[in-house]
């Protein structure tokens, strides 16, 4: 099962390496990993999406909590969470295909961030499903470059 973990860490040299080393050393999977500062000085937030059976996920969470520099670990799969990822896609756009690509851009509510005579660069934001869907749609035009941020997630205010 896929799980998204929100991991609050002390922002000190080596903290990324401690977390990454834990995953590689124990044979856990990292599907995406994203790190950035928080509003509190000296504290960073990592969002890790991973997969494994329940026992593995339990171990991952416990092992993360055991790291001295990890302040808090929340399994966002336990709660209703909002999940987003951003992707930049540079797609081949010939005279004939351009209109159709723009229609897709419209449908998926993404943005064009760069244009040239034969390329369009799109910014897509959404959950995994949406991103996979648009990638599927665009593949036939020829995707030239592809960069994704990895998942970030947040617990919804209203739990039901």
């Amino acid at each position: 099962m896929r799980h998204v973990l929100s991991v609050l860490v002390e922002n000190e040299p080596g903290v990324l390496s401690r977390v990454a080393g834990l995953f590689s050393g124990r044979g856990f999977n990292i599907d995406t990993l994203n790190v950035g500062p928080t509003l509190e000085k000296g504290v960073s937030l990592m969002t890790i999406s991973t997969h494994g059976d329940e026992q593995i996920i339990e171990q991952i969470i416990k092992q993360l909590r055991k790291l001295i520099t990890v302040i808090k670990v929340v399994d966002l799969s336990d709660t209703k969470a909002g999940e987003r990822e951003m992707v930049l896609i540079k797609v081949h756009a010939s005279e004939n295909s351009r209109a159709e690509i723009l229609r897709i851009v419209d449908i998926f509510r993404c943005k064009v961030v760069d244009v040239s005579t034969d390329e369009l660069t799109l910014e897509v934001t959404g959950d995994q499903g949406k991103i996979n869907a648009i990638v599927n749609m665009l593949q036939r035009f020829g995707i030239k470059e592809f960069a994704r941020t990895g998942t970030v997630a947040m617990k919804r205010s209203m739990q039901f």
Partner: peptide, 14 residues
């Protein structure tokens, strides 16, 4: 050495 011993210490410091 901090990098080398990260997986075999409880914690380490530079």
């Amino acid at each position: 050495i901090v990098g080398i011993t990260r997986p075999c210490t409880k914690h380490n410091y530079l």
